Computed example of a mutant assay.
Amino acid sequence: MSTTTKVAIIMGSKSDLSVMQDAADVLAELGVDYEITVVSAHRTPDRMFSYARAAADRGIKVIIAGAGGAAHLPGMVASLTHLPVIGVPVKSSNSIDGWDSILSILQMPNGIPVATVALNAAKNAGILAAQILSTADEYLVKNLMDFKENLKKKVEESAKEMEDGD
């Protein structure tokens, strides 16, 4: 069973897909429908405006936006929609160790919030999107609880292996 609630995963460039795929993978694991595409704030501003303004009408409930370098995509999208936006700073080839992306997404002006995860942490963005959606979806609550229980089991197994000397 899959929820019909949708998450949009967007990125400034196809080169960001290697990072942003983690969000898609965890959303699929949790049973959340999503769409994924490239929307560049700088190279395709008209596409970005149209995409952000129409997202809610298409059934999107949360937007995950990844960008590197100047990383304006998450903030610009947040300025165009009432939907929650989760920004993923991406360490790109033209990045200053990712700090430019982190600060561009993190330092939003009051009134235009963007939830920001760690550098290249698209998986956390996917989990956060699912947690936001779970406030109105019991199916997701169960899936998230199972997911977190599996994380706990993995840590306990690792600890046991180390303690037993395996």
Rank of each mutant, 00 (worst) to 15 (best):
M20H: 01
I64D: 02
L17M: 12
Q107W: 02
S134W: 00
S15P: 00
A136F: 10
A67C: 08
K152I: 04
S18R: 14
A115E: 05
G98A: 06
K142P: 11
I64Q: 03
K142F: 01
I112C: 15
E149P: 03
S158E: 14
S158C: 11
S134D: 07
S50F: 00
K160E: 07
E163L: 13
H72D: 05
H82W: 12
K6V: 13
T81F: 07
V77K: 06
P74I: 07
F147H: 15
G66H: 00
P84G: 15
E29F: 09
A67S: 14
R53D: 11
D146R: 14
H82M: 12
G31Q: 01
A125K: 05
I64G: 01
I112F: 07
V38K: 00
T3Y: 05
F49G: 05
D166L: 11
D57P: 03
I60C: 11
H42W: 04
V7E: 00
K160W: 05
L83K: 03
R58C: 12
A24Q: 09
H82R: 13
N120H: 05
S95N: 06
T5N: 14
E29R: 14
S158W: 08
E157P: 08
D164N: 13
A23Y: 02
A23T: 06
N110V: 11
S50M: 08
E156R: 13
A78K: 08
L144Q: 09
S15V: 00
G12C: 10
A23I: 12
T3G: 09
L106H: 10
V141C: 07
A115L: 08
Q131Y: 04
